[in-house]
Design a binder for these strands. Structure first.
Lengths: 140, 140
DNA sequence: CGGTATCCACTGGGATACTG
DNA sequence: CAGTATCCCAGTGGATACCG
């Protein structure tokens, strides 16, 4: 895992060498898109298979219809999900991952597994910091 | 790569089975932290090695001192970076990745490589969508 | 069912000025 | 150099009501 760190360092050096303007790198673009509150969650829900609008709403209970609709449209625009409409009454709209969207699952899963694995360590670090601040405050 | 998708589906199913409340899963917690505008960028800058405050500020020209300081403190609180102060005059403060922070580089690098690889495909999807909307508008 | 439209509150984050 | 304090604005996103 340590050499991923080295590789990352090399990547950053590469960016600096290549790009005169570090502001429009593809990574920032990606993060602006899927770094929001809902995108990753919705994509992961669709990993298991296609789902309809209200099924997604039920699976993610704290998303509003507004944000659900908006986030799905963004994901569709970016080519990560497909939106299939069956013009019945009532309408039936099904969302599913595209090939591009599926290809994102591998790196996303890596991140999720990291989060699950190191969740406790992060929580412990937060507790330590809280204690340190409390102690510093006592004799400050 | 397709089986990462299957694995993700399984993960989600696992969450649903385990957790009565999907709202406090570690993944959401992680995203709330590093899903912001600056965290991933700063972490990747530190991958190459320790850096001082103003060096980071120069490396990420569009971050304000306020956000730099604030983001660094959050990352420190979460145990992802170390903050070492040399009490000289003027002060010299050096930031570096912790072991936990370095362990995050692997999944982060995977995501960055995906972004670089599929950047063009996303841009193409956006263009297609823009065209579709324009065409629909013409005879709407 | 699958959305839009409108209104509004909260907060992320920039600008600026000041401090040790 | 390495921050903190204050102010303020723009955008994110929730609540609600309505529509095809």
């Amino acid at each position: 895992m340590e050499d991923a760190c080295t590789a990352m360092g090399a990547k950053v050096a590469e960016w600096k060498a290549l790009s005169p303007d570090p502001l429009q790198c593809p990574v920032r673009d990606l993060l602006d898109r899927i770094g929001d509150r809902w995108s990753i969650l919705l994509l992961s829900m669709l990993a298991a298979g296609p789902m309809r609008f209200n099924a997604l709403a039920r699976a993610v209970p704290d998303i509003s219809k507004r944000m659900l609709s908006q986030t799905l449209r963004t994901l569709e625009t970016d080519g990560l999900i497909d939106r299939m409409v069956e013009p019945t009454v009532p309408p039936r709209v099904t969302y599913s991952l595209t090939g591009l969207g599926r290809s994102l699952m591998a790196p996303m899963l890596a991140l999720i597994i990291w989060a699950e694995t190191n969740h406790a360590a992060v929580a412990a670090a937060r507790r330590r910091m809280a204690e340190r601040l409390a102690t510093a405050g006592e004799h400050g």
